[in-house]
Computed example of a mutant assay.
Amino acid sequence: MSGWERGSSGARDGAGIGEELRRAREELGLSLEDVERATKIRRRYLEGIEREDYGVMPAPVYVRGFVRTYADHLGLDGEEYARRMREYQAAHQGEGEDDPILSGEVSVEHPAPPLVSSEGIREAERGRRFSGTSVALPIFAVVLLFAVVAAFYYIGKASYSPGASGGQGGGGAAHPAKQQQNASRSGQGGKQPAGGSSGEVTTRALEARLDVSGGPSWLEIKSDGKVVFVQTVEPGFSRTFTARHEISITSGNAGAVKVRINGQNYGALGEMGQVLTRTFTLKQAGSS
Rank of each mutant, 00 (worst) to 15 (best):
R6E: 14
G7Q: 11
S8P: 00
G10P: 00
R23S: 12
L28H: 13
E33T: 14
D34S: 04
D34P: 08
V35W: 02
R37E: 08
A38G: 09
T39R: 06
R42H: 10
R44E: 15
Y45R: 04
I49P: 07
R51G: 08
R51W: 06
V56T: 10
M57L: 14
V61G: 10
V61Y: 05
V61S: 07
V61P: 00
Y62G: 09
V63G: 07
G65R: 05
R68C: 10
T69V: 09
E79R: 14
M85D: 08
R86P: 00
Q89K: 07
G96Y: 05
E97S: 10
D98Q: 11
D99C: 15
I101L: 15
E105F: 03
V106P: 00
V108Q: 13
P111N: 00
P111Y: 02
L115N: 05
L115F: 12
G120D: 07
G120Q: 05
I121D: 08
A124S: 12
A124D: 13
E125V: 14
R126C: 06
G127K: 06
V135K: 15
L137G: 03
I139D: 01
A141D: 00
V142G: 11
L144F: 15
F146C: 15
F146E: 09
F146K: 06
A147M: 13
Y153K: 14
K157I: 12
G163I: 08
A164W: 10
G169T: 10
G170I: 08
G172M: 03
G172D: 11
A173Y: 04
A174G: 13
H175S: 14
N182I: 12
A183K: 08
S184Y: 03
Q188W: 09
Q188C: 07
G189K: 10
G190F: 09
G199N: 14
G199L: 09
E200Y: 03
T202L: 12
A205Q: 13
L206F: 02
D211A: 14
V212N: 01
G215D: 04
P216L: 01
I221V: 11
K222E: 12
V228D: 05
Q231C: 00
V233R: 02
E234A: 12
F237I: 04
R239C: 01
R239G: 01
T240E: 02
F241S: 05
A243V: 08
S248N: 07
N253W: 08
A254P: 07
A254R: 06
K258C: 04
N262L: 04
G270R: 03
E271Y: 09
G273M: 03
Q274H: 12
V275Y: 04
L276R: 11
R278T: 12
R278W: 05
R278C: 05
S288E: 12
